[in-house]
Design a binder for these strands. Structure first.
Length: 281
DNA sequence: ATGGCAGAAGCATTCTGA
């Protein structure tokens, strides 16, 4: 079973590229971020024709998330609206469409577009930290429903220096600060693990290249798109790969897809019991 | 400190992203 995440930076601009990629890869579940469209204008027909059902949570111009799935999603939740047992003030998060979750094939799929945060100390940075803390509370609730959890999306955080092409230049700055990493760790706690790092321990693997300064041609990238899985789900993981090929397209998204392959019949807890698979700051 | 590029809104230029 293939589960993928992709920040497409506008569903309407990228539609044909996404359809092409689906035809090549045939994912079972595809989580999209930065769709940048209201729900009524989301182009659902091309996905329906390929046999997918679609759940969308979008807005005009900015943000927006969607779940494309061969198996119809159940228990769909949009934003932080559906959980009540938190002391966080979710009011300020209601107008930015950054989270959609659903139960698919017994797995709780949580698709997020984490705020960028602009720069350390800015209002947007505070928003990013508060949003992540709210996500932690959301997960506290969701993990009561199932042990099979898959949290994925654009996190706008490089988990370690290995995930930045030039750590000397960028460590400590936006997407690479201690406070962002520790806040992300508070979301993951001991319950979620970075799928990609189970299979790849080295640097040099990126999911995002800035449009500016010829970053892709110079391979100056970051790994900021992640798929985190719970212990129960990690025991069924077969692979996690970043498919950088769509970055070669004409007018590409600045992000590329990340995907995992799981076998729901397998159980192997070795990944989770290896402490090296948890990052530390 | 600023700009570099891209998308959306909407029609010149601004806002936002990362």
């Amino acid at each position: 079973m293939l589960i993928a995440t992709w920040n497409v930076n506008s569903i309407r601009t990228r539609l044909s590229q996404i359809i092409d990629w689906i035809n090549q890869v045939n994912p079972d579940i595809l989580c999209l971020q930065e769709t940048k469209v209201i729900d009524d204008s989301f182009p659902i027909e091309p996905f329906k024709k390929l046999g997918y059902s679609i759940e969308v949570y979008g807005q005009k111009s900015y943000n927006g998330v969607a779940i494309i799935s061969k198996i119809k999603a159940k228990n769909v939740k949009k934003g932080f609206l559906d959980f009540r047992n938190s002391d966080q003030n979710i009011g300020i998060f209601l107008n930015q469409k950054r989270l959609i979750s659903a139960d698919i094939n017994g797995i709780k799929i949580i698709n997020v577009y984490v705020p960028n945060g602009s720069s350390l100390g800015s209002d947007k940075f505070e928003y990013k930290i508060n949003w992540l803390n709210c996500l932690a509370s959301f997960l506290d609730e969701q993990e009561k429903e199932t042990e099979l959890i898959c949290l994925m999306g654009d996190f706008n955080i490089a988990p370690t220096y290995l995930d930045i092409h030039d750590p000397k230049k960028y460590e400590g700055g936006i997407m690479a600060s201690d406070i962002e990493r520790s806040t992300l760790n508070n979301v993951l706690k001991e319950r979620l693990i970075d799928s990609f790092r189970i299979f790849e321990k080295n640097t040099g693997h990126w999911s995002w290249w800035d449009y500016r300064n010829n970053a892709y041609e110079l391979n100056k990238g970051w790994r900021i798109d992640h798929i985190y899985v719970s212990k129960e789900l990690s025991s069924k993981l077969k692979s996690c790969v970043i498919d950088s090929s769509p970055r070669e397209n004409l007018r590409p998204s600045d992000h590329v897809p990340v995907m995992i392959d799981i076998n729901l019949n397998d159980t192997n807890l070795d990944f989770f019991e290896d402490e090296d698979n948890f990052f530390e700051i």
